[in-house]
Structure formats: structure tokens, C-alpha cells
Design a binder for these strands. Structure first.
Lengths: 190, 190
DNA sequence: GTCTATACGAAGATAGAC
DNA sequence: GTCTATCTTCGTATAGAC
């Protein structure tokens, strides 16, 4: 991995903090400290302030998910790929002592104040993920309507399940959802 | 409906604001204003401060959901009942211009500061909802393991889908999830 | 370009007047 | 019991020294 610039470090740190705390609870002060940068540097790199940081953090999480999920599905198909993807989330949740979460979901459950750019970035992420999944399901023989509604169900249920695991401090919900999705996907592809 | 006391009004208002903004973004000041009560009254009724209000708001949402979902399932069975429950959520989301959400999910995606009582209340709510659904599925012929994992999938996917609808300002995700869940539930019961 | 110091408002919470 | 005024801390953001 190439040397990470201070600017990139801020975006990565913001994505982590958004997933843990949510948008409103993530302060620029703490983000700067967390990333080892002075407060002023943040506004130097991101003239748009907190909103700009949030948008780029969501886009970073989007790109990362597209890559990880896309690679897993390409390598192992929808069933195995989804299993690998859920396993990654289980590790994230456990390794953070049930505190880490998805920054895209975090942004989606908060009313925007004045600027809804972060929310729009979240909407684009959800659309890209569902399109990726639906395409894969179609390529493995699922009918178009079935592929679309199943793709939405997969994205929504993984997001919801991660939140349930955090509240219950247990990976049991994620284990069950993984089983349920495996059965479901097997039933709609060749 | 009986006359609602100022205290009850504060709890109901808190549940609404939590679903829209999240826990950290909901200020006691605005809650008091929103409920027509002075700031001091809030601390009179809730000596535990914001945390106590949040716990009671989550418990209120829990009880309301248990009643609405329980009644729907009792009357129409798992398939029809779930359809009615999802329709209720669609109305809530549309009538709030895609701003209202679930207070239980909102609490679950935020790292607790010092007191995790609201998060624990959210965990109890999720457990009660999944138990309610699993029991209904079993009573309609689903095998135990299948009922449990499907119940989790239902709760998680509805929570996640409501968030997706808010981000995308569209009810399409909820429509698709409703279809997917209907197909799925039909396939596992008699 | 980097960072310190600070302005200004709003947060949670409380004291104490009525 | 109800509410106003206020304390302290923390938020976003910026000015300006180096």
C-alpha cells in the first residue's frame, strides 16, 4: 500500500468515525486528533468543512465495498462471495468490540441539516451495491425481477443486521442472516 | 385516546425526533420546544436527563411495534400481517417527506458515550420483535431454525430498507423488500 | 502550507425565583 | 411544581502567526 497522505488519512478516519458514531456525533476536532492532524489542516484540505469530509468518507466506503464485494462475488459467485462478505463484517464488528458500523447507513438515518450532499452520496452507494448484486444474480440465472428485489433484500438485511449485532453485542444475528441469505440465494440461481 | 400528559408527550416526541435525527443530534432543548414544555420540566419529569428520555422513547417504540406488528400478524397471518406492517412504514416515510425513521435503529448505530442504557433498550426491542415473528412462523409450520433465521432477516431487512428509502427519497426499496419477504415467507410456511 | 488561538453559538445540566 | 437564567463544555469555523 502506498504512503497515505494526511488528506487520505482524514478521509479514512472519518469513515471509521461515521460508522461508529454517526454524522452529527463526529466532530471535526476529534477527527483531526484521531488522524494526527491539527484542526486547521482539516479546513485547509477540506474547504467545504465537515460536509465535504462526510461526502468523501461515504464515497470512500462506497468504493471500498464495491471492490471487496465485487472481488468476492467474482471469485466465488453470489453464494460464496456473500458468505465471504458477511464474514468480513463479522470480523469488523467483533474486532471493534461491537462498536464499528457502516458509514453509509449512519448517514442515511440522520435528517440532513442544511446540506444533503452526504445523504445523496449514501443514496448513490446503495444504488451501486444493489446494481452490482442484481447483475451477479442475473448472470447466474435469476430472473430480472427476482434479482432486483433479492439484491435490495441483501443490502438492507446486512446493514440492518450489523446494527442489531452492535445493540445485542453478539454476532448471532449476523450468523443467522448469513444462513438465511445463503438459502435464499441458492433457491433463485441455477 | 386518553388525554396525554406532558410527560407522555415528551416521550412520544422524543421517539419521533430520535427516528429522524438520531440520539446525539436530538437536543433536550428542541425536544422540550417540540413538545410544548419548558426545558426545566424535562429534567423535572426525567431526573436521569437525556439518557432516561432516550430509554423511555425506545421502549415506547418497542411497545408500539409489538402491538402493531402483533395485531397485524394475529389478524392476517405472517404473510398478510407483514404486508400491512410494511405498508404502515411506507406511509410513515412518505408522510414525513422521507425524514422519519425507526428510533431503535437510530440508537443502535451510535456508539454509546458513557451510559449504554438506550443501546440495551434497543437490544431488547430487537429481541422481542424477532421472537414475535419466529413464534408466528413456527405456528404456521416453519421449522425452528428456519423460523429463527427468517425472523432476523425480516427485522433487519425492514430496518435497513427504511434507511435506504430515506437516502434515495423513494419507496421503491420498500416495495421490493415487501415482495421479497412475501415470496420468502410463503416458501417456508404451510 | 502548518498549526495555534480564538470567536461565536449551542449543547447538557442546574439553581433558584415564582 | 413551573419555568427562567445561567454555568460549563464542546461544537463549527476562521484569523493570522510562523
Amino acid at each position: 500500500m502506498a504512503k497515505r497522505t494526511a488528506r487520505e488519512q482524514l478521509v479514512v478516519g472519518a469513515a471509521d468515525m461515521l460508522g461508529r458514531r454517526g454524522l452529527r456525533a463526529t466532530s471535526v476536532r476529534e477527527l483531526a486528533k484521531h488522524s494526527g492532524a491539527p484542526l486547521g489542516s482539516t479546513y485547509h484540505y477540506f474547504p467545504g468543512g465537515k460536509t465535504q469530509v462526510a461526502v468523501e468518507a461515504v464515497e470512500f466506503a462506497d468504493a471500498l465495498t464495491m471492490r471487496v464485494l465485487g472481488d468476492a462475488i467474482s471469485a466465488d459467485g453470489p453464494v460464496g462471495g456473500l458468505g465471504r462478505f458477511v464474514n468480513m463484517w463479522r470480523d469488523v464488528v467483533v474486532n471493534s468490540d461491537f462498536r464499528a458500523g457502516c458509514p453509509v447507513l449512519a448517514v442515511s438515518v440522520e435528517e440532513p441539516d442544511d446540506d444533503d450532499a452526504p445523504l445523496q452520496a449514501a443514496a448513490r452507494a446503495f444504488e451501486r451495491w444493489t446494481d452490482l448484486l442484481a447483475e451477479s444474480l442475473r448472470m447466474h440465472g435469476a430472473e430480472d425481477d427476482t434479482a432486483q428485489r433479492t439484491a435490495i433484500l441483501i443490502v438492507a438485511s446486512i446493514e440492518g443486521t450489523v446494527a442489531m449485532c452492535r445493540a445485542q453485542r453478539s454476532t448471532a444475528p449476523l450468523d443467522r442472516t448469513a444462513d438465511a441469505l445463503e438459502h435464499l440465494v441458492r433457491s433463485i440461481i441455477d
